[in-house]
Nucleic acid binder design. Structure first.
Lengths: 158, 158
DNA sequence: GGCGGCTTATTGACATGTCAATTACTTCGC
DNA sequence: GCGAAGTAATTGACATGTCAATAAGCCGCC
């Protein structure tokens, strides 16, 4: 009699899975909370400001920005509205495509990013890089690559 | 001259960090989307239903439930309101503490959980367990434990 | 037996995320 | 050029998450 392929995770596999996702979530949440307390900004703000800081002329079309940071456009649009209200970015009309806009980093936005960057990177170092042995760090990169590959194949097939 | 401790991650360390968090986020998002499409429920719903399913008498005090799944009480309260509107759980008054409530799994809730469970576990298997070699799976558990420990010490010191 | 302080649970205000629909413009094919 | 199809960006409706404030009941201690 042929043996049927096991379909569901064993309890040990499930335990690892839960530890993994819960830890990743706790890490995300702790870094978000520090960013908020130390620099009054959300991880989303930081991501957007980082991308704009690295962009030519500190400006990007929303679509390019969305592609750079891997967000849906609608999400970005809402977020930019909030950031604009706080003076971190400015919207300008695009010269070459009148449907379009350009998002420009303001001086305030650049200041805020400068102030947030060092503490944030220190926190990443403390909670991730320094917590792991060199071997574990390599393993983390390896894991991420493997999981990402599976995700991409799996979504492609859909 | 004493050497000052390096404070910020190197670019290679940062690359691994970004891969790691972005992959964890993509995995979370893909599983959420499948759960929604296959079973019309959010990960939060699933988490709550799982805890109630395993509870004695399919009922728990909100505080116990919050502790079990690691949520803040306010978050849970909002979420239970939404689940109650959809008939997945019911609130009852607590006999022994009249401040309190008891959250009871409804028949509908139990059905919904039964229907969601197998496909969800299959997805976990496909996207996580089966994607990894046995060594990688062990490494994932090891990573989670190490990072969790650092998070706990770090938060404790605060 | 009653008061001060803790615990329980909810609520409101607001930030964030997703999805579908809309608006306005560009571009392609003829 | 002109209409169909595609693209850029925003919007509205709603689900989810956080924080601070509130209401209400429990409990220890005098």
């Amino acid at each position: 009699m042929t043996q049927r392929r096991r379909q569901l995770p064993t309890s040990e596999e499930l335990r690892i899975w839960r530890d993994f996702v819960e830890t990743a979530e706790a890490l995300r949440s702790e870094l978000a909370s520090r960013l908020q307390n130390e620099s009054s900004m959300s991880p989303g703000d930081y991501t957007v400001l980082l991308a704009l800081s690295e962009a030519d002329g500190h400006r990007l079309r929303p679509s390019e920005l969305a592609a750079t940071i891997g967000w849906e456009r609608s999400r970005l649009s809402h977020h930019l509205g909030r950031m604009e209200r706080r003076g971190l970015v400015r919207r300008e009309n695009c010269a070459t495509d009148s449907r379009g806009a350009e998002i420009v980093l303001t001086a305030e936005g650049a200041d805020a990013f400068r102030g947030a960057s060092i503490p944030h990177l220190r926190a990443v170092r403390e909670l991730f890089v320094d917590a792991l042995s060199p071997g574990q760090l390599t393993a983390a990169g390896d894991l991420a690559a493997t999981l990402r590959e599976r995700l991409d194949t799996s979504r492609g097939r859909r």
